[in-house]
């Protein structure tokens, strides 16, 4: 039985959803033609893993920069027999996650859950759930900046050329400079990865901790950037390698002496409550809760 913290829908959602949860969708956020176009773009993306496919990004009831890309992907692929889980920084109960989840269920009639093993589509910002995702899952990631070379090159045509010719030397130089300047490669979230030994992608903004999950995964990952109007994909069982020099191993965050203050785990990705020093807890709230209730 799913437990959803229950607050009465307010404002626009309330007006639009009425009593139509779990029955006929009361309203449409994305029309069928749009969904079809997005699915076509996604098919292209799956055929060229890591390649940024442009698509006609629609106006969504969430502002640009708040997950409109991920939302469009989810709406395009989800059906009434699906179950959606939405997390924001690992938390199902963040305001954004809740709003997005309600929008999806209300407009498509699908089920919702906080449990990974019940979900078929997991939409996320900033994390991959701790629980293992399998071939029953499709992971939809919200991406603010899809271009890994942003900050290195501004010219669109040059960016296009670099990806087309697999000419990533400037990316390598920036990693080199990073290591020289800081002693380590400092990128913490959105670490650039080489997909299928061909395209470099921005994994923004998941932490290093989650990067290894993308490699040779059982599940399909779809990345959506609404403001930038791009989607890209990592099909199951695809090689995904974080860009690093062969003598500088890629390292994930270490939990040396930190434990979750709620469940005691140090084998999950931990985040710190801002105001307090020693106040670490699991980023994935559903996972943490499940541990505690066992």
């Amino acid at each position: 039985m799913t437990v959803v913290s229950h607050r009465e829908p307010t404002g626009v959602i309330a007006a639009l959803s009425g009593s139509a949860l779990h029955d006929e969708p009361a309203f449409t956020v994305l029309d069928e033609e749009s969904k079809r176009e997005i699915r076509r773009a996604l098919l292209h993306a799956v055929c060229a893993p890591g390649y940024q496919v442009p698509f006609g990004s629609r106006e969504m009831p969430v502002a640009r920069g708040w997950g409109s890309g991920g939302l469009q992907i989810t709406l395009a692929i989800i059906g009434s027999s699906d179950t959606v889980k939405v997390i924001d920084q690992g938390d199902d109960e963040g305001v954004n996650a809740v709003n997005l989840r309600r929008l999806v269920t209300a407009s498509t009639g699908c089920e919702e859950t906080t449990e990974v093993n019940e979900a078929t589509v997991v939409q996320t910002r900033h994390r991959i759930p701790e629980d293992e995702l399998t071939s029953q899952h499709t992971l939809v990631l919200q991406v603010p900046v899809p271009e890994p070379l942003r900050g290195i090159e501004r010219d669109m045509r040059e960016l296009s050329r670099m990806h087309a010719e697999s000419d990533y030397s400037r990316m390598w130089v920036s990693l080199y400079e990073d290591k020289v300047r800081n002693g380590v490669i400092t990128q913490t979230t959105g670490y650039p990865c080489l997909v299928n030994e061909r395209y470099v992608i921005a994994t923004t903004p998941i932490p290093r901790w989650d990067i290894p999950r993308l490699h040779n995964a059982e599940f399909l990952s779809l990345f959506g950037a609404g403001r930038e109007k791009r989607v890209y994909a990592i099909p199951p069982h695809t090689v995904v390698e974080p860009l690093t020099f062969e003598d500088i191993p890629f390292e994930i965050e270490q939990n040396e002496n930190t434990y979750c203050r709620l469940c005691g785990s140090n084998s999950s990705f931990l985040v710190q409550s801002p105001a307090q020093d020693d106040n670490w807890s699991c980023s994935d709230t559903a996972w943490c809760r499940a541990r505690r209730t066992k």
């Binding site: 390598w172 130089v173 080199y176 062969e246 500088i248």
Partner: peptide, 16 residues
């Protein structure tokens, strides 16, 4: 060093 790393990485050098 970075200016020299550029052609080297373009030629496939991956060892820092």
């Amino acid at each position: 060093g970075g200016n020299i790393a550029d052609p080297l990485t373009a030629a496939g050098w991956r060892n820092y």
